[in-house]
Design a protein around this nucleic acid. Structure first.
Lengths: 321, 321
DNA sequence: TTGAAAGCGTTACCAG
DNA sequence: CTGGTAACGCTTTCAA
């Protein structure tokens, strides 16, 4: 830049980085600062990290599905926690790249750490990222990936929790709503599996209920409700629960007498329904903890990958079950 | 990298970029490709853009507030549209930097375009970005900023639409819910102003109703409802509308006889309430259009800044008003 | 058809 | 204390 400030580039670097190893005269500092402001000088991150051989960028693929308030909060917390640790968090617009191909695209940015929600990253992808200089790869999903740290979000626990509750309440024929919206299978499948697991070896039976998030789809499901002969339903989450409850009530099905309903996510919404919605409260990891994990991993890239279960599920009983 | 592939770096560059200006022998190409795969070679985006003097990165600050399905959809569309135009969309984790300070942080990444939702970027910030090589700066907010293209989202129109409707229905004492959640003022204030504008010069009166998004806050508001003497309320959006409606119904206030309620956002939710919720349907710009605007601006950085109104508001009347 | 070399903006290192 | 120089990985121009 301001070789035009009358000094050398090195001097500029010293001044702007407050390098303490060398001492620059006050007048010089002033000259440099002034010139910087005047020229609207902004350091060039790419050049810096090229020279340094590493960056402070933590890369996350941007979530593809509209994301609830829970995950939003978590993400926010994570970002500010990492920010305080002097990392720059960047969400990479996921443009439908698949798995290891995506990993290569991410690697081009040479992030110091990569945080991958969901599945789709294989051991190969992890290897690519690490070779390209990523000092930490952390997955946030149902299963661990070789070479990466893992935050295991076992959505099975959500279904398990709901099903165990329904069974304890004496319900035996249990429906499970499976959203038809694409992108939600990642959550709905494990939740369904969790229900199955909870009921294995009991006399209770599970019925899958595919459902699109529209009034009409819910009405159609409700119309054939009696012939399904269910006495309980785990509705995937609170929003689908609301959709289904309304349709059932319009159909004259009494809740919870004829059918118990349980949602998930513990949204404010559920408390506003009548009957009040029983739900599975989901506890995500604290953003601060995760930020610290990332920082630790970056500082000690050789360490054993940490694997940690991070999804807490607990039932909140209200009036719908 | 693969000087170890037996060829020169230039050759590698040619092969991997499919440079058509020069012709490389097929065997060489193969050798290079193979070596690249074997070594897990991934080009270094920073080096590339350093050399090229520009990047294909479109930068967006990540929204600070949990964002509804509307905006999510819009963002998704935008990202894939830009992806198809061969841009890389990156969301920068907003770490509470203010205005032009944030602009400097963004400028460090030398994005080719910056897309800024909300206020907080001043003309100075725009200038910094442009000087640092951004060929397009587009704001998405209530007012234009000198030097930047603007997509004007006039949330006043939302309030205006709701208020005009309520007035046409004969309501005269109109409450307006103002969320207490931080970060929402950016939307709630203009919406309130829009209501005021719609009712100016009429005999209708406006009452502000601050409200936190909790059951208790809603109950407290409902408890003193009669003394407020309102015959209509614009509830900020559908979610606050649901919250308030429930509290009012618990209090025995009849909707719409005693008080008409209008929400906004036209969520599925509103159709599930009883009475069905009247709402303001909001039309965001199509992601494709915006992507094209960005692309045009990048190709012709000298052009006049485009200023465009992009927020459509139309009332959907149901049973609550 | 291929190779060599320059240069993008930074910063570490060493000589003045 | 300050300034010159080299090197990070890449693309491009020029020469072989």
């Amino acid at each position: 830049m301001a070789r035009l400030a009358g000094v050398s580039r090195a001097t500029v670097s010293y001044v702007l980085n407050n390098t303490s190893a060398v001492r620059i005269s006050e007048p010089t500092r002033r000259r440099v600062r002034e010139a910087a402001r005047e020229l609207g000088y902004v350091p060039h991150a790419a050049a810096r990290s090229l020279r340094a051989g590493h960056s402070r960028m933590v890369l996350m693929p941007a979530p593809a599905v509209p994301v609830g308030p829970l995950y939003s909060r978590f993400l926010d917390e994570l970002q500010s926690a990492l920010g305080r640790l002097d990392y720059t968090v960047v969400q990479y617009g996921a443009v439908g790249l698949q798995g290891d191909e995506a990993a290569r695209a991410w690697a081009e940015l040479r992030p110091v750490a990569v945080l991958v929600p969901g599945t789709g990253l294989g051991p190969q992808g992890v290897a690519v990222l690490k070779r390209s200089g990523a000092r930490a790869v952390v997955t946030l999903g149902p299963e661990r990936v070789d070479g990466a740290h893992a935050l295991l979000t076992d959505h099975g626990a959500v279904g398990h929790c709901a099903a165990a509750h329904l069974r304890a309440r004496g319900r035996r024929r249990i429906g499970v709503v499976v959203p038809e919206e694409p992108g939600l299978e990642a959550f709905s499948r494990p939740r369904l599996a969790g229900v199955r697991r909870a009921l294995r070896g009991t006399e209770a039976a599970v019925t899958e209920l595919p459902l699109a998030y529209t009034e009409q789809a819910a009405a159609e499901l409700a119309a054939r409700w009696r012939e399904l002969g269910l006495d309980a339903v785990f509705a995937y989450n609170d929003e689908y629960a609301m959709l289904l409850m309304r349709a059932l009530q319009d159909e004259g099905v009494r809740i919870p007498e004829e059918v118990a309903v349980v949602g998930a996510d513990d949204l404010v919404l559920g408390r506003l329904l009548r009957p009040r919605l029983s739900t599975v409260h989901i506890e995500l990891p604290s953003g601060r903890d995760l930020a610290e994990l990332v920082d630790r991993a970056v500082r000690d890239p050789g360490g054993e990958p940490e694997v940690r279960k991070v999804l807490g599920a607990s039932l909140v009983q209200r009036d719908s079950s």
